[in-house]
Amino acid sequence: MKKLMNDPENIVTAFLDGLVAANGERLQRLEGTDVITRRSFKPQKVGIVSGGGSGHEPAHAGYVGEGMLDAAVAGEVFTSPGADQFLAAIQAADQGAGVLVLVKNYNGDVMNVEMAQEMAEAEGITAEMVIINDDVAVDDPEQRRGIAGTVLVQKMTGAFAETGASLSEVKRLAEKAVSRVRSMSVALTPCTLPAVDQPSFDLAEEEMEVGIGIHGERGMDRREVASSAEIARLLLDHILPEIPQGAPLAVLVNGMGSTSLMELQVFANDVIEQLDRDIQHTFVGEYMTSLDMAGVSLTLLALDDELAEHLQAPVKTVQWKQ
């Protein structure tokens, strides 16, 4: 697939420069880093930081702003940012009440955040971490990856922090959100890394990859391509057993990068028709992609009154508009 770019080796820098050029009234890039922050910070508010490898846009920089993230760190494509980059984000986000880092469950990301925490603590900054692992395609909860459910956790946690809640309270809500959100994905085509210009795995025309992550890796199963309704049933069958029964739901239908909005709306309708539950919110669009992969992920969040309040709270970011 042809790509609109200049130097593939410097695509992340060019992406960040373009993001700030188009949204300079609300975003800034910390000099000498790959960190995007808010233009203005709220004093004595808990700072919320997230990040990871690039290639998942609009995550995470697209969610920097009032009511969501204070800073986002962009690594190279599908590569964890270094500990120094996470530290820079923590330093920028610290407004005197401590910082919470929301990190997807990938070894490099977690390890580098842990090192950044230690360096921040040495400077007198209190930094806590919550690991997001919503991908039910992986059986072992300890090994589950963070995928599109991450965005809902960021939304609710950021909104709660905006109210002036303490670091311990914000961390508590984030951990509750993580415990009640589950996701799973299907790919219809692989993605192509900018500097490689070849698919990340081979997939025949009549095949789909089930249980993919967001880094171009293969899934847990390969099957014959199914209809939208059949894929909805497949994903629901895996996700629903892990969601608290009886709770109202928020539904996130997420495109992986090259799936049309028409197709996503068709899939959303199939999910809603098959869910015999109270659905309070439905989000459809591209929230956490995998470059140019065609596919879809489904996220279900079991709401309670507290989570629902912060999910629907006001927010001002480039991507998430309430």
Rank of each mutant, 00 (worst) to 15 (best):
Q85I: 05
V64G: 06
Q274N: 13
R222G: 02
K2M: 14
A93Y: 02
L298I: 07
F41L: 14
E175D: 14
G146C: 07
D237K: 12
G53S: 09
P194I: 07
N254I: 08
L102P: 00
D84V: 06
E217M: 06
F78V: 06
M208Q: 07
G146M: 07
E230D: 12
G216A: 03
V138E: 06
Q117R: 15
R182G: 02
F201I: 11
Q280A: 09
V113G: 00
A161N: 06
H238S: 15
V225S: 09
A72R: 02
G55W: 03
A74M: 14
K2G: 13
P244L: 05
K176R: 11
L261P: 04
D140Q: 13
E286Q: 11
V20D: 05
A83R: 12
V130S: 15
R218G: 13
G213F: 06
D17L: 10
P194R: 05
E263K: 09
V99Y: 01
L87M: 08
S179R: 08
P8E: 04
L311P: 00
E123L: 13
F283G: 04
G124D: 14
H215I: 00
K3F: 12
H310S: 01
D237G: 15
V46C: 08
E121D: 13
L236E: 04
E169D: 15
R180K: 14
L203Q: 06
S228K: 07
G62F: 00
A177L: 07
S297E: 06
L173R: 04
T282W: 03
H215M: 07
K155W: 01
R180T: 15
M208P: 00
R180C: 12
G62H: 03
E206V: 13
S40P: 01
I131Y: 04
K42M: 06
L87A: 10
Q245C: 08
V113L: 08
D140K: 10
K316Q: 15
G158P: 05
E209K: 05
P8C: 05
P241H: 05
G62Y: 03
V151C: 00
I239T: 03
G149S: 11
I212E: 02
